[in-house]
Write a protein that binds this DNA or RNA. Sequence first.
DNA 1: GAACTACGTTCGACAAAACGAACAAAAGGC
DNA 2: GCCTTTTGTTCGTTTTGTCGAACGTAGTTC
Lengths: 182, 182
Amino acid sequence: MTPSELIARAIQRERQRADISLTALAQQAGLAKSTLSQLEAGKGNPSVETLWSIAAALGVPFSHLFEMPEPEVKLIRATEGVGVSSDHADFSTTLLDKCPAARRRDIYRAKVLRGEDRRANPHPAGTVEHVIVISGTVTVGPVDKPATLNTGDYYRYPADVAHQYVAECAEAQIVCIMESLE
Amino acid sequence: MTPSELIARAIQRERQRADISLTALAQQAGLAKSTLSQLEAGKGNPSVETLWSIAAALGVPFSHLFEMPEPEVKLIRATEGVGVSSDHADFSTTLLDKCPAARRRDIYRAKVLRGEDRRANPHPAGTVEHVIVISGTVTVGPVDKPATLNTGDYYRYPADVAHQYVAECAEAQIVCIMESLE
DNA sequence: GAACTACGTTCGACAAAACGAACAAAAGGC
DNA sequence: GCCTTTTGTTCGTTTTGTCGAACGTAGTTC
């Protein structure tokens, strides 16, 4: 998918959603009609300022113009899901919902097996993780502030430092929400 | 914050993170050094294709170039938590983490008891809910697209329409992430 | 210390994006 | 039916982003 096409579709989609004419949008964005026309035709390579104006006029976050339209609903069974590669056999994660461009948030389902503990390197500054235990007992959190959780427990902690996931039983399942503040 | 500054910072940040020189990045992206230099100086207004090349060369998602860069811990036991008032006795929710001002995202843990089904009125436009089942069996989702979930299952659906939570067993526990776009 | 490499910046030339006017087509208004 | 308004597209002109070469600087090598 080339960027031009992506943007072309996004603008068309958002403009249709806002129910506004090309002419009106151009006027509100302070752009020439011709510019918009070519962009929607996929024959453009706009500058960021141009796109910025369009996003502002459409009242959508800037990065919305680069997103693929997603299906409305999404269902992942407990036994399904695309696994996320891990170098630890005792820790398998499933990415449930990828963070849209507009926000920074990923949802994982992870299975933690007893054995060697899983240590994660720090994520980018400002990253926070939320863990809710589905089954079993796990010790999670920053290495200096770990918490031992049972089914249903919730724990939030900074993930921009080294942190760990340790199963206290044969197999534990957790939900992990990883998000970065802007 | 003007787009130029935003991009300038983002490129600097990502390039530093990747530990690569301006010259090398330019070569890998197929761009002129001068172009990158001006962009990092905040004196540019690049086209999307230019940015696309940079993002690809940096190995980061395209939209990462538009995000602002950036913790205490919080633990709620399965038996704890501030309950959220509900007019239905068979549906008790606990607000695990309130949405910060920067984003719109609330995390709930909810207990659904068998009995009359719980119907929720539409949330503001663009609201999406994510549900992960901790225990039991529940039927959730828009009234026209419900899904019956078992332990560990994940379901995402638009919540700006009428939706429901129905326990298919005596008592089910779920995690619900409610988020609004923008 | 001269010669070499790698780094990032500045400059003129060119190609391309954005503009504005003129264009054809369709949708109301009377 | 005709006129008016609004729709989106096309074309020549102006503006500007991109390129490549030349530049100053810093760090290595012999």
